[in-house]
């Protein structure tokens, strides 16, 4: 399931929901991404996140489908927030449950790495009165490419 929302999310609730995916589930891996105080700018005080409604959900569904073909995935959950966010706020959640940890770890990392370079979201850093649209990182692209 995919949610793009302005509201915050609760990792505990999401974990319990993945845990309840059935007796065949032996592993749950979750990732949370937070707003950090330094990026392209130093002294970041917040972020603004924009997305392309419709396309974003389609792209993420494609990543979940691809992960499900490559690994054993019983259920995958992606939440991404948009709008104004403050320091340490949660931005993104990826949770995957599987029979075994290896599949869960890899599928979770793949979805997150590929989301960063293919899902149409854009981050603007805010530092006091300064605003700056974040540039795509070569390291993120290279990391995403390692999945082949």
């Amino acid at each position: 399931m995919i949610s793009i929302q302005t509201a915050d999310f609760d990792v505990g609730t999401e974990y319990q929901s993945l845990r309840a995916s059935g007796a065949g589930t032996g592993a749950v891996v979750t990732f949370s991404g937070l707003v950090r105080d330094s990026g392209d700018l130093s002294g970041v005080t917040g972020l603004f996140l924009e997305h392309y409604p419709g396309m974003t959900e389609q792209v993420i569904q494609g990543l979940i489908d691809e992960a499900s073909q490559r690994w054993h995935v019983r259920q995958a959950r992606v939440i991404h927030r948009v709008g104004r966010l403050a320091l340490s706020d949660q931005i993104v959640f990826v949770g995957v449950c599987s029979a075994h940890r290896g599949d869960a770890f890899e599928a979770c990392a793949f979805i997150m790495d590929a989301l960063k370079t293919t899902a149409p979201f854009w981050k603007k850093e805010i530092s006091g009165d300064d605003e700056h649209w974040v540039e795509q990182k070569t390291s993120d692209v290279e990391r995403s490419q390692t999945w082949g």
């Binding site: 991404g33 996140l49 997305h51 392309y52 419709g54 396309m55 389609q58 991404h80 931005i91 993104v92 997150m112 989301l115 960063k116 370079t117 293919t118 899902a119 149409p120 979201f121 854009w122 981050k123 649209w133 974040v134 540039e135 795509q136 993120d140």
Partner: peptide, 25 residues
């Protein structure tokens, strides 16, 4: 809403979106 390239044809009724490289997550 599907990624395209310069040679992709564009037809009446299409939605064409231009944007910078993505930076979510």
């Amino acid at each position: 809403q599907a990624m395209a390239r310069p040679s992709t044809p564009v037809n009446a009724g299409d939605e064409v979106a231009f944007f910078p490289p993505v930076t979510g997550g």
